[in-house]
Design a protein around this nucleic acid. Structure first.
Lengths: 351, 351
DNA sequence: CTGAAAGCGCTAACAC
DNA sequence: GTGTTAGCGCTTTCAG
């Protein structure tokens, strides 16, 4: 074969041009849209396009400066309900704004996260959205800031979603929601029902999100003049299994408590099952609350009282503000509100 | 400014070359890996790269024939637990195989699905994985077949995941799991517990997956010489709300049944809540089963008996077989097995 | 070992 | 209106 044509690599604009008996530019023009082309040629070109089943190579267009913009979404695991919700928001808004959407799961591996970001920089994505909490260490800030600069100098943009901000001056967009405030409100509600000893099933001790929620728990107690028993503060991670394990642990240690608030709904789900397995009634014997308001929360039994986080909107906002950035406009920092949604898993203490 | 250099568009290979005092080809070579380059120049180039924070433009590389391969994952809504599981499998395997992963949510819109696929063809993705059931109409087969051909002639590949196959000769890879078999086994198990009237909360009447599960339900009855009351066959969709609504409907119509099997775990979740709201005990008053074995199934109360579908593996397999395709090798059609997982939501009838 | 030149597929001046 | 000529940023012969 002399030249590439109908083979497995798809046809090029030149193939179309040849078949229609015109130049490549003409093809480009009729496909490009608004440009004066005679009806006759236009028809011929269009026919050739159809016959060859031609679509312009998006990568080549990109190099030529007219590519489909793309944005990247980097998270730990798409399987988590709140991550999925955010991903959904991101994806919806991205396609609404005409962007393609790359996803990358890091599985919690920092190195992989770094690699992904570098790859995205190579892809010249319009923005990379980094999702999910981590430890807020100096090392984290420095590393992330370097990434932000790198991305910015390449005309891209870093968005931090539910991640610790980097301090002033970093070219990032950060969108957070109020972990401490939400936890405060929730725990205040629990305390208002008369509970005095409420077990807290927390996340990793150095995880920023976990810390925020824990602070809220503590603050709500103090506001009532209470000083929570340190024994009631358990640490694990944000998974269902962690909740299950921690709850069993608390039960086996015969810790005293009348209510438990879990750092996430997933944790709460695991805890709830552990409670059921132990033959305890919720909220009869012990009250329970979660955090996140994932869709499943209302189908737990009893329906879970929790705090609502607008995850999907978070995702939408992330892309909207990221894409709305001009080189001159100031970096944004949004703090979304949360609110507790009262369902059936908290009861007033009667005794 | 005369030439682009350090500006917001990132530096090019020529900038690096200039700074290192070599030609672009040399830069390309040291970055490219195995090619003889003197240690001295290599060092200079590498330093320039570092100083400029340079990364080669992946799109340009792609045009030049050495791009990062990419694959696309098209689904209805990443928010559904089983979709998320598949997406996770796809993403993991894709990155394991060095591919980038594009996601597209169609929101159930056929036109959007078509548009996405066209876009993916333009992106020259190595494969596009289409996920989730639909109606198996002639129109569907024809349309999809056209897509498959189109993709194939462009050197790409269509993968159907949990979707009706297209008949012989179509250049597609299809990976399914046994809906009918799984439902059969599940319903047989329910029947074996002595239930005679089991309500079926189905999906859309023309949805292939829903039909498969319904067939299994019917077949299991017939195998026992039973002829299920048509009144017991309700149709909705695969959402939690559908389950909730249908269950309330069944209750209000005072349909007679001692067990209910839902077409999906989501449907079961909604149904369960409706049952609880009606003050009924599960499985004391009525038994319940689902389908899919989503992670949450075990945290429902009672823990849901359901049929396990290896979604994550499905995703992994999809990319593995799609990418393992050579132009000559035969098209694959995999049928994955399922199995029922017995938990606590089904009780034997005692009366 | 390294540079010049051609080419990937497409678009965008610049002519006629 | 339409063809020709340059690029876009990178890789890869082809010469030295």
């Amino acid at each position: 074969m002399t030249r590439k044509s109908q083979d497995a690599n798809g046809s090029t604009i030149r193939d179309v041009a040849a078949r229609a008996g015109v130049s490549a530019s003409t093809v480009s023009r009729v496909l490009g849209g608004d440009y004066p082309v005679s009806t006759a040629t236009r028809t011929r070109v269009l026919r050739a396009v159809r016959e060859l089943d031609y679509v312009a190579d998006a990568r080549a267009k990109a190099v030529a400066g007219v590519g489909t913009p793309t944005l990247a979404f980097v998270l730990e695991d798409i399987t988590g309900p709140s991550f999925a919700l955010m991903a959904h928001g991101v994806e919806r808004e991205a396609t609404r704004l005409g962007h393609l959407c790359l996803v990358c799961s890091t599985e919690g591996d920092v190195q992989r996260e770094l690699d992904f970001i570098e790859t995205m920089r190579a892809q010249r994505t319009a923005a990379v959205i980094l999702v999910g909490g981590t430890a807020d260490t100096p090392e984290y800030r420095e590393r992330t800031r370097r990434i932000a600069d790198s991305l910015a100098s390449a005309g891209s943009r870093l968005v931090l979603c539910g991640r610790p901000p980097l301090g002033p001056g970093a070219p990032v967009t950060v969108i957070e929601y109020d972990n401490e405030g939400g936890a405060y409100a929730l725990v205040a509600h629990v305390l208002a029902q008369g509970h005095q000893r409420v077990l807290f099933l927390g996340g990793k001790p150095d995880h920023a999100t976990a810390q925020g929620r824990e602070r809220g728990y503590l603050a709500a107690h103090r506001a009532r003049g209470l000083d929570p028993d340190p024994e009631l503060l358990l640490h694990g991670d944000f998974t269902r299994d962690s909740g299950h394990r921690l709850m069993r642990l608390a039960l086996s240690k015969e810790l005293e408590f009348t209510a438990v608030v879990a750092a996430t709904d997933m944790v709460a789900a695991g805890a709830l099952t552990a409670l059921h397995e132990a033959g305890l009634d919720v909220p009869g014997d012990v009250s329970l609350a979660g955090y996140d308001d994932i869709p499943f929360a209302r189908d737990l039994y009893p329906a879970l009282t929790t705090v609502h986080v607008p995850y999907e909107e978070l995702g939408r906002l992330a892309v909207r503000t990221a894409l709305g950035r001009t080189a001159e406009s100031p970096d944004e920092h949004l703090l979304l509100g949360t609110h507790v949604v009262v369902r059936d898993s908290i009861a007033a203490v009667t005794s």
